[in-house]
Nucleic acid binder design. Structure first.
Lengths: 164, 164
DNA sequence: TTACATCGTTCGTGCGACTAACGCAAGCCG
DNA sequence: CGGCTTGCGTTAGTCGCACGAACGATGTAA
């Protein structure tokens, strides 16, 4: 099963396997692994990625309408409905009509929600340890820093309305 | 660790916005941007991500069966069928039955395919410049290096059979 | 031969990102 | 006041991608 035919024959720079160096492909791959890991890990405590995003946002920025949460977490407001249903089912948040603006619901985190959030924090911490296992602490910081820079640069006007 | 209602109130480290520091979330975000960029850019030359993956693999490692290509590129063999259909339609590859093993098809890149691949290389180069715009050349290398390390660490036994 | 593995292919599932459109309520602005 | 525009929550639906199941045809090993 010899495969020679063309041979790499690079044009000067000794660069094999262009595929493996492509940042876009690496990103896809790593994100795929990351998503699998996180999703599976969270499933074991009956949670999903969005649950954490919403709960964390509520804890750090206080209660808000669904649209506000949508902007804060990056979840589309169409999908936010379902997420909040799940969270409300589990009594981790409360969804109450806003008396000041009857279009809105005010979402508040419950005591149980805060407890659950702390649990999720631990779980996610462990999962990230596993995800970034091959990196030293310094490299992890660098990694996060680089990702942040790239993301911020492109997040200027990409998804929905120029989020707050 | 007591809890003070809502208020940020971090437990010691001045760490705001846990969401923004989560590697998994950053990865998702950056990959989303990356995918958008690449997909749109390639669409303008009537190509998709996989086209490049397959063509590059063919050029660098020579012809191979669909299953081989599947392993080399990470595309599922169920999806490979469609990709090769598209590539064959455009006459960028040739799909011929393997006389030595009548189960297989031997996929070969055509001259036109090689030409197209060079075009895609240029396009992708520009797109990556845009994607990694906020990073210095040294940082880009670091970025690729870190991603590679993480990916390799997890790619050991994750997707389909322990790929060659 | 029988048993098993591999290949190409078709079909189907589940999920995440995203749009469209609705009914409703608020906020202008004349 | 009445009309327009905007934002809200919700429902439904599209699209693409990762992945699994199964099948017929073929190859390989017992």
């Amino acid at each position: 099963m010899t495969e020679v035919a063309d041979m790499p024959h690079d044009g000067g720079t000794r660069t094999p396997d262009r595929l493996r160096r492509l940042a876009s492909r690496l990103l896809s791959g790593v994100t795929a692994q990351s998503d699998r890991l996180i999703t599976e890990g969270l499933a074991q405590v009956d949670a999903r990625k969005w649950h954490y995003a919403v709960l964390a946002s509520l804890q750090e920025h206080g209660p808000g309408s669904q649209a506000t949460l949508s902007r804060r977490t990056g979840i589309y407001r169409s999908d936010m409905v379902g997420v909040l249903n799940e969270l409300a089912e589990r009594e981790l948040v409360e969804r109450a009509p806003d008396p000041d603006d009857r279009r809105r619901n005010v979402i508040t985190i419950t005591a149980q929600g805060r407890r659950h959030l702390r649990r999720l924090d631990k779980v996610l911490d462990d999962l990230h340890d596993e995800l970034l296992a091959p990196l030293t602490p310094a490299e992890r910081d660098q990694f996060v820093l680089l990702l942040t820079r790239v993301l911020d640069h492109h997040a200027r006007q990409a998804p929905h309305p120029p989020t707050s």
